[in-house]
Each structure stands twice: as structure tokens, then as C-alpha cells.
Computed example of a mutant assay.
Amino acid sequence: MPFTLATWNINSVRLREPLVLRFLSDYQPDILCLQECKSPVEKIPREAFTALGYRHMVARGQKGYNGVAILSKLPIKEAGAEDHANLGHARHIAGRLENGVAIHNFYVPAGGDKPDRLINEKFGQKLDYLSDMRDAFHSAVPQKSILVGDLNIAPREDDVWDHKKLLKIVSHTPIEVEALAQAQDAGNWVDVTRADIPDGNLYSWWSYRASDWDAADKGRRLDHVWATPDISNAAHSSRILRDVRGWTQPSDHAPVLATFDL
């Protein structure tokens, strides 16, 4: 049976619980992967999600920072959680559906403001995290898997509002783009969103700093849906729900969706 999967950096699942509930009610994905939950697992508001049919959850959390969760209408069992770069952060959770498909939900470090690991520890952590992802995929090449999340990198020139202006801005620097490409290549991952929408500017994040983010449209595609080649052809109907970015007290990210006929 086909299922629709969504990924969304929610920027506090407790603060934005009403938005999650509205999204689940309006769009009804079968699976929702959340990043930056900023909550211990036991304080994620599961009861409200369960009432809408999302009875299954796997998650990793910590107080006030990071955190990843997979909410699902479909039965799902935890399939591991990696602490890449040994940061001690809740940045990855994996679940496995009854049909054997594994879902990896990642929240890659943002990397701070300066793209230089010698003066910015956070940028070094980001690069190390991506290197560990690459090495993990080399060690055990994934199969029948989907990878989603806020990867905090906009890889293509048309994934940012101005390629030349952002070449020295964290999230679009050549060293980050190359690091992400190496991780993607190591797992033979297919960029499902761009397979469906190959041409044109495409963004999933707009800064809070822009007073009129919609008109300025200085966006970046930081949120991704990938799949292994053995199931990537089953993906279709990719879309980014830009209007959700305009809801009251929104996250600065918009949900990204894809449907899989599996």
C-alpha cells in the first residue's frame, strides 16, 4: 500500500503542538518525521497525536535542544540511533515498518556562523558529523531505506536564493556541499525531491530575520527526502508546503512530503 511521508523541522514540538495537530489534520501524512523537537521523549505530547491516529512513535530527545521523532499511523519499531561525531546529541532515530522499509530521521548540526573549523567549533562538528554519516554508509550500504530530515545544507545552486552570495555562508559553502555529496554517494541515496522536481528554485527554509519572508523569498532547501535505489522509483508526488511557513507562530521550516508506493 502507498504511504505519504513528511519531514519537518518543528523548532519545539511542545511550543508548536497546535501547528503539528493542524498539519496532521489538514494533510494527514501516514508518517511525520520531526526534527529540533527540543523536548525529552517523555514530554512530547503523544496523547494529542494518538487521538489523530498517530499511535506509534520512535524518538530521541533532550531538554531544550535537538531531538528527533517519527510519528506514524503505521506500525513502526525502533531500528537504532546513531551519535555521529560523538556529540552526545539527539540527532538521529531510525524506525522500521512492517514491510521492511527503514526510515532514518536526521538533524544535522547547523554549523554556526563562520565556515571555518579553526575558529568555529560548531562548523567542525558539522563536518565531522557528515564524515561519520559517510563512513557509516560505506560500512553498511543501506537497502530498502528512506532518509529524511533537516540536513542543514542546500546543495544545488537552485536550492538557494542567490548562489554567488551564499557561497561563503554556512549551509551552502563548497566544503559542506561536498561533504553532503560524499555521504549521499556512500549510501547510493537518491534525492527524491529533486527526482520529482528537477528544475527551478526550491526552498524549505526562510529566516525569521526577514520581516516579510514571503515577498523577499530568500530561501534555502535545507530539508530533504532521500531513498535507496531499490525503492526510489516508487516515490512520487514530492512537494514542499510553503504555506505552512506562513501559519501563526511558525517554524522557520516548511514540511517536505513524498509518497511511496510500497
Rank of each mutant, 00 (worst) to 15 (best):
residue 1 M to P: 12
residue 3 F to W: 09
residue 5 L to Q: 04
residue 8 W to N: 00
residue 9 N to I: 05
residue 10 I to N: 05
residue 11 N to H: 08
residue 13 V to L: 10
residue 16 R to S: 09
residue 24 L to W: 13
residue 28 Q to L: 08
residue 28 Q to K: 15
residue 32 L to W: 14
residue 35 Q to W: 11
residue 35 Q to T: 13
residue 36 E to I: 06
residue 37 C to P: 06
residue 38 K to P: 10
residue 45 P to R: 01
residue 48 A to D: 13
residue 52 L to S: 06
residue 53 G to A: 04
residue 57 M to T: 01
residue 57 M to I: 00
residue 58 V to S: 03
residue 60 R to C: 10
residue 66 N to R: 12
residue 67 G to H: 05
residue 68 V to C: 09
residue 74 L to E: 13
residue 76 I to M: 01
residue 77 K to V: 13
residue 87 L to S: 01
residue 88 G to M: 08
residue 91 R to Y: 02
residue 94 A to I: 01
residue 98 E to F: 00
residue 102 A to K: 13
residue 103 I to K: 02
residue 109 P to D: 00
residue 115 P to I: 06
residue 120 N to V: 01
residue 121 E to P: 05
residue 121 E to D: 05
residue 124 G to D: 05
residue 126 K to T: 14
residue 127 L to H: 11
residue 130 L to C: 00
residue 132 D to T: 02
residue 132 D to R: 00
residue 140 A to R: 07
residue 143 Q to Y: 04
residue 145 S to R: 05
residue 146 I to F: 02
residue 147 L to C: 08
residue 147 L to I: 11
residue 156 R to K: 06
residue 162 D to P: 01
residue 163 H to T: 07
residue 166 L to I: 07
residue 169 I to M: 10
residue 172 H to L: 05
residue 180 L to A: 06
residue 183 A to Q: 03
residue 183 A to R: 06
residue 185 D to T: 10
residue 191 D to K: 03
residue 191 D to W: 01
residue 191 D to M: 03
residue 197 I to P: 04
residue 199 D to Y: 07
residue 200 G to H: 13
residue 201 N to G: 03
residue 202 L to N: 10
residue 204 S to D: 07
residue 206 W to D: 06
residue 206 W to E: 10
residue 207 S to H: 08
residue 208 Y to F: 15
residue 208 Y to L: 05
residue 209 R to P: 00
residue 209 R to L: 07
residue 210 A to R: 02
residue 215 A to E: 12
residue 217 D to C: 04
residue 219 G to D: 14
residue 219 G to V: 10
residue 220 R to N: 02
residue 225 V to F: 10
residue 226 W to P: 04
residue 228 T to C: 12
residue 231 I to V: 08
residue 234 A to I: 02
residue 238 S to D: 05
residue 241 L to W: 10
residue 242 R to F: 11
residue 243 D to V: 11
residue 251 S to L: 08
residue 252 D to W: 14
residue 254 A to F: 05
residue 255 P to Q: 11
residue 258 A to D: 09
residue 259 T to V: 03
